[in-house]
Amino acid sequence: MTVVFFQLTLGLYFLGTVMFLVCLDRRSEVLSTIALGLAGFGFFTHTIALAFQLLSGDDLKWVTFHKAMSFFSWSLVLVFLVVAIRQHLYVLGSFILPLAFLSLVSTAILPTEAPVLHPMFQAVWVHVTLSMLGTVGFAVAFVAGLMYLMQERLLKSKQFNVLYFKLPPLDFLDKLNQRSILLGFPFLTLGILTGAISAQITLGAYLSWNPEQTWAVVTWVFYLFVLMGRVTVGWRAKKAAYLTIVGFAGVLLTFLGVILKSSGVPVS
């Protein structure tokens, strides 16, 4: 049952993504409403799939990479739907939905059903959930940064095309960038703390500097600087956009560390 709903979700996100990308240089409101509808319906089936998974309870909750990514993708779409509908900002879908779709696809193509962490620590799903919520914040910041750079370039080069009209004002994107990091950061902090505790329990050390942990700490420090830099030395606007894009690359590397580790490739 779960599998059926997952596949349905995957299909809907795919269609939504295609639709949203088609919308990028078209002014039709109808198309973007359809795209939003597809995303919304996909979110619905996704929720059902996740609920089935939770209720079946035959294994620990979020401990596999699959489930973590699926949860990530679900939260991303949730954030997108809330922001897009409240701000009437459908163009966000052209950027976020592909990301959500790709993360869900990654669960389908990566051969890893192995647990992320040793299941001895029963509350490991707390760590994964928190880290994923933090990541959602950074992903939104990444998208905002990307949109910022595009809009900035369009303004600078005086290309008043459809995309220019669709993209929101620079100020809005900069604020979205800042707020998403501000929201994501506490989650990542808690995620790292719970991760350290679970590592202490399962591996006997809070920090063993494996690639996953190293990148997590580096990412954390990085975003801390990004946040502080905005207030102290004016890392905002274009600079903030670049930084959040780089930061998200760090996040992806952390993921890579997790995948490598859980798929048994010798690391360290």
Partner: peptide, 9 residues
Amino acid sequence: ELAKKVFGD
């Protein structure tokens, strides 16, 4: 219009 594209409000 252009100012709004930069500053929003």
